[in-house]
Computed example of a mutant assay.
Amino acid sequence: MITLRLATERGHANFGWLNSYHTFSFGHYYDPKHMGFSALRVINDDSVHPQMGFETHGHKDMEIISLVTQGTIAHKDSAGNIRELPAGEYQLMSAGSGIFHSEFNASDTEHLKFLQIWIQPNSLGGAPGYQQKSFGEAEGFTTVITPDGRDGTLQIKQDAALIQLVLDQEKSATWTADSKRRYYIHVVAGTLLLEDEIVMQQGDGAKIEHLSSIHFEKQSDHLKVILFDLP
């Protein structure tokens, strides 16, 4: 079963310095039909003006993933991490028992665009953690996040995985799924034909349940998708 979530139907908040589209209920946007999916709680598509950003604020018991699509994030947190996150790199911050952080646009001239993703952990408390890594733009599927951090992936406190799919030279790819698990896909760039029948554009998402395989076919020169494997 596939349930489509169109980009044009997402929640929207514009604060001047921040323009954000919410796949699931967040902040002032509330829709009881879109409260999350499995352990996936937030996908915010954020655009931040130059020299602006999120002032220091706290989180607890949440796995927070950022993927920059344009520009660079300047990150600072109460665990002592002071880092820059450029376009294409993944950041995973485990809030654990509590962490304070700020995220700013590192540029004086360019807008920052990034996906902010929250996944609920399966264990509470513990020391906060910070991980950051580039996984490049290799053709096909690249596993980015896993529960055990295997093969150089970022490690998350949940029975979940994040997989990146890039199609440039190849036309299509198929992911072998577990029909007992749930999957969510989000189109980062390009146009996707899902399961030979559903056309999806940038910002569109889809809940996937009870399928043993997921077929992706690009309908543009370049396609980038993130796939969540969820309990």
Score class of each variant (00 low, 15 high):
residue 82 I to A: 06
residue 22 H to Q: 13
residue 72 T to N: 04
residue 168 D to N: 14
residue 127 A to W: 05
residue 59 H to D: 10
residue 132 Q to N: 07
residue 203 G to R: 06
residue 178 D to V: 07
residue 32 P to T: 10
residue 89 E to H: 09
residue 26 F to H: 00
residue 59 H to P: 05
residue 118 W to G: 02
residue 15 F to W: 14
residue 127 A to Q: 14
residue 123 S to C: 12
residue 176 T to N: 14
residue 76 K to Y: 03
residue 164 Q to W: 03
residue 181 R to Y: 07
residue 222 H to K: 15
residue 186 H to P: 01
residue 99 I to L: 00
residue 151 D to E: 14
residue 152 G to D: 06
residue 149 G to V: 06
residue 48 V to G: 03
residue 5 R to V: 02
residue 175 W to I: 08
residue 167 L to S: 07
residue 209 E to Y: 04
residue 51 Q to S: 14
residue 188 V to K: 06
residue 25 S to R: 03
residue 182 R to D: 14
residue 90 Y to V: 02
residue 4 L to W: 00
residue 220 S to W: 09
residue 69 T to G: 06
residue 202 Q to R: 14
residue 7 A to P: 08
residue 3 T to R: 15
residue 109 T to Q: 10
residue 49 H to G: 09
residue 173 A to L: 07
residue 143 T to L: 10
residue 209 E to F: 00
residue 54 F to V: 05
residue 169 Q to S: 12
residue 2 I to N: 05
residue 98 G to R: 08
residue 219 Q to D: 04
residue 115 L to M: 12
residue 73 I to P: 00
residue 14 N to S: 13
residue 198 I to K: 09
residue 123 S to T: 15
residue 226 I to T: 13
residue 208 I to S: 08
residue 130 Y to L: 12
residue 212 S to G: 07
residue 175 W to E: 14
residue 31 D to C: 02
residue 213 S to N: 13
residue 230 L to H: 07
residue 163 I to C: 11
residue 75 H to V: 04
residue 192 L to N: 04
residue 12 H to Q: 11
residue 113 K to I: 01
residue 195 E to M: 12
residue 61 D to A: 08
residue 175 W to T: 08
residue 52 M to Y: 10
residue 94 S to G: 13
residue 92 L to D: 00
residue 179 S to T: 09
residue 4 L to I: 15
residue 17 W to V: 02
residue 47 S to H: 05
residue 216 F to K: 09
residue 55 E to F: 08
residue 182 R to Q: 15
residue 208 I to E: 03
residue 148 D to T: 15
residue 98 G to P: 01
residue 147 P to R: 14
residue 122 N to Q: 15
residue 174 T to C: 11
residue 158 Q to Y: 09
residue 87 A to K: 09
residue 121 P to F: 08
residue 53 G to R: 04
residue 216 F to A: 07
residue 2 I to C: 08
residue 187 V to F: 03
residue 55 E to S: 13
residue 46 D to P: 06
residue 12 H to N: 12
residue 225 V to N: 07
